[in-house]
Design a protein around this nucleic acid. Structure first.
Length: 428
RNA sequence: GCGAUCGUAGCUCAGUUGGUUAGAGCGCCGGUUUGUGGUACCGGAGGUCGGGGGUUCAAGACCCCUCGAUCGCCCCA
């Protein structure tokens, strides 16, 4: 008989199994839960947007010439003949929803979401084809205060995740449209003048996306890139004033930041503030959270002129940096022998009804079950015994030294309406 | 799309300059021992060495192709 071919996971996708505190799935969940908690502190509403959109939503938002649009999108034709794309980012879809759902009436609108995104890229450390992001946007606010609030939010999130130590906020301004155009022209002139000294990649960039030469990693490009003009000389007074308000706002909020005049971002829609929280602990993928202002985007999609700022953070990247979250309290209920199976089941139900997590093994003698509970790192084992003799009916064995023994004891016996292990009699 | 490294039991890996019937630990299944209890002992199942082709008397080891993984380039969270 021919051996059937086992299905394989699709390249760049991941399966995550939880169960132990250091499991990746648990870290992942911890990042999401922390985001959801902190986002409420800043008054960001949860939004849900579709995982796929009309291809035009992304093509027009991100810019036709960007790598994401030109070679990384999962685009297909559906049965009705429409061109559909799996979302490669959140901002475009949220902007579309803002227009089509009439959300202008709520402006300025603060929204947050998280979920899977798709990009056809070669997987490597901290990069996947299906990956996940946290996302926060403020739509309809032209004030630098919105940029500041978003950055303070991001900063607090990283602090609460305990990873702010190895991560620094790098900040730049790309100016308004007028500043950006003037600067861009100056950069092109500069790079054209040194065309011969640039790497092949950068000569390519010169035609497509000259700003990107600035943050090139190729050592051959560094001298030319480093000697290129900063945007500062080209900033209009408004643009300069805007950036100053952002930085002074950050200082007032106690958020540490660094100016990186070489920071540009890949997508066409960014204006004014551009920022990245970067780390050196993730190999080549240093950016853990990034974003900026995208004042022209919604208008580009056919909506009203609407200023907006936002950021996105890679959940996998954050999850790789966080310490293993503290495990939940979970009690293993073990019947001492088959006679007390039902009694154990009754007790387990009572505990669960009191919101205490309980695990009951399906088979095995008491010893096997105890071994299993210890291996699974449960908090404590509650052994249920028959009441013959003078032994206590219940015996709570504490395993997890990280949890307060007296507290767990009180929790369990409290839920059962007892002071301690009961001698004799049944629980009713 | 390009480059480097790597694919041996469910998992982590040994496997000497090619040389009998491919090993270990953990896990799994069964048993012994113990008996308020993770740490002992015995036994068992499980691999066409990623797949295909080639060199050779002989390939898990060498060569080619292919698929996949990891890391890097590009780009991005």
């Amino acid at each position: 008989m021919a051996k059937i071919e086992t299905p394989r996971p699709v390249r760049g996708t991941q399966d995550m199994l939880g169960g132990t505190p250091d499991a990746f799935a648990e870290r992942f969940a911890h990042v999401v839960a922390t985001f959801d908690r902190v986002r409420k502190l800043y008054g960001f509403q949860r939004v849900e947007v579709p995982v796929f959109e009309s291809t035009a939503v992304f093509a027009r938002s991100l810019g036709e010439s960007t790598d994401v649009v030109s070679k990384e999108m999962y685009t297909f034709e559906d049965r009705g003949g429409d061109s559909i794309t799996l979302r490669p980012e959140f901002t475009a879809g949220i902007s579309r929803a803002y227009i089509t759902e009439g959300w202008q009436q709520y402006a300025p609108l603060k929204v947050a979401t998280h979920g899977p995104l798709f990009r056809y890229e070669r997987p490597q450390k901290g990069r996947f084809r299906q990956f996940h992001q946290l996302d926060a946007e403020i739509i309809g606010a032209a004030e630098p205060g919105a940029d500041v609030e978003l950055l303070v939010f991001a900063d607090q999130l990283l602090k609460e995740l305990g990873i702010n130590d190895g991560v620094t906020l790098t900040l730049n301004t790309l100016g308004d449209a007028q500043s950006r155009e003037a600067w861009r022209a100056a950069l092109i002139a500069h790079f054209e003048a040194h065309r011969g000294d640039l790497s092949e990649d950068s000569v390519e960039r010169l035609g497509k996306n000259p700003l990107r030469i600035l943050d090139s990693k190729d050592p051959r490009d560094r001298p030319v890139a480093d000697s290129a003009p900063d945007i500062d000389a080209y900033l209009t007074d408004e643009a300069r004033g805007f950036f100053e308000k952002v930085t002074s706002g950050l200082d007032a909020a106690g958020v540490a930041w660094e100016r990186n005049a070489r920071l540009v971002r890949g997508l066409d829609y960014y204006r004014h503030t551009a920022f990245e929280f970067v780390t050196d602990r993730l190999g080549a993928q240093g950016t853990v959270l990034g974003g900026g202002r995208y004042d022209g985007l919604i208008e580009n999609l056919g909506g009203p002129a609407t200023p907006a700022v936002g950021w996105a953070a890679g959940i996998e990247r954050l999850a790789m940096l966080v310490d293993a979250p503290e495990g939940e309290i979970i009690i293993s209920v073990v019947p001492d022998n088959a006679e007390v199976d039902e009694e154990a089941q009754r007790i387990a139900s009572r505990l669960r009804a009191s919101n205490i997590a309980v695990d009951v093994a399906f088979k095995g003698n008491a010893k096997k079950r105890v071994e299993l509970a210890k291996k699974r790192k449960h908090t404590a084992i509650l052994i249920v015994r028959s009441t013959s003799g003078d032994r206590e009916k219940l015996y709570l064995q504490h395993i997890d030294e990280g949890k307060d023994k007296a507290e767990v004891h009180k929790l369990v016996y409290g839920a059962l309406g007892l002071d301690s292990g009961l001698s004799g009699g049944d629980l009713r």
